[in-house]
Design a protein around this nucleic acid. Structure first.
Lengths: 137, 137
DNA sequence: CTATATACCTATTGACTTAATAGGAATATA
DNA sequence: TATATTCCTATTAAGTCAATAGGTATATAG
């Protein structure tokens, strides 16, 4: 299950995407709008900065802003950056140790199939699409 | 991510499905074949019995057996019985508290869509299919 | 009848993760 | 120079995960 980290990261990015483009938005404002503790959000936004999804600027007049148009962010990359694991089982992770049962494993094909479905789903939705879906419905 | 509980439950059911039908198989045998601690497996199989997926018989000559043909068990019901959560976010759980943000939530539609995809996927695969896929590949 | 093999039950542990908080250092701008 | 902000390191309480431990109940085999 997706934890608060991923869900908050998504809300954070959505919030930024709905603000005046190319202006730095203070975290205080975002956390107020979203009703999430500023301190907790700090932990999450830090990762997004570290992974170059957004840019932070310190000092008075500072804040955070997107680095690309909302249509170029996928939900998958946001969730992953926030530390969420979209892979269904540990043995499919890139750094998983070799499984000696794999050649006879009756489930591996199923997991791979689901892994692809999840990946395609979340990397196939953009931030912009989330916003426009909301507008419509 | 699916934890050992769900994965072991699946291996357990697969193991039972490949044994002589309608005979009671001791847990000791299963755990030996699967290379999983008998004590740990006990915790998992207990749930499967409690939820009537399999039947246990005590005493000498006892063990566990399936209650239906393998083609009538879905992977989804096995994982769920083992305690796995197939729902992607907490707010979609049956006992979730009402979310006052739901009417304006930009992500809920996406989560619902993915929830349906996951559910359809896992409840659409049977134990028998897992076994026959293995035979082929 | 008795020994034995088995399921079943309750509890405990150590490691790890999650969600959140705390206090301060660095740095821009007004 | 005061102030608003990001950025950094650490801590905590609660919860989950994976596994182990020791025992009780019960059926069968001999």
């Amino acid at each position: 299950m997706i934890s608060t980290k991923g869900r908050y990261a998504l809300r954070l990015m959505i919030d930024l995407a709905t603000q005046e483009p190319d202006t730095y938005i203070p975290l205080k404002d975002i956390s107020k709008r979203q009703g999430i503790s500023e301190k907790y959000m700090e932990n999450i936004i830090k990762e997004l900065v570290r992974q170059k999804l957004i840019k932070g600027l310190r000092g008075k007049g500072g804040g955070y802003k997107l680095l690309k148009p909302a249509s170029e962010y996928s939900v998958g990359e946001i969730l992953t950056a926030a530390g969420e694991q979209l892979t269904p089982v540990a043995c499919l992770l890139p750094d998983a140790e070799i499984c000696e049962r794999e050649h006879s494993c009756p489930t591996i094909a199923m997991w791979r199939k689901f892994d692809k479905i999840s990946h395609d789903f979340f990397y196939g939705i953009t931030l912009a699409e989330l916003l426009s879906d909301k507008r419509q419905g």
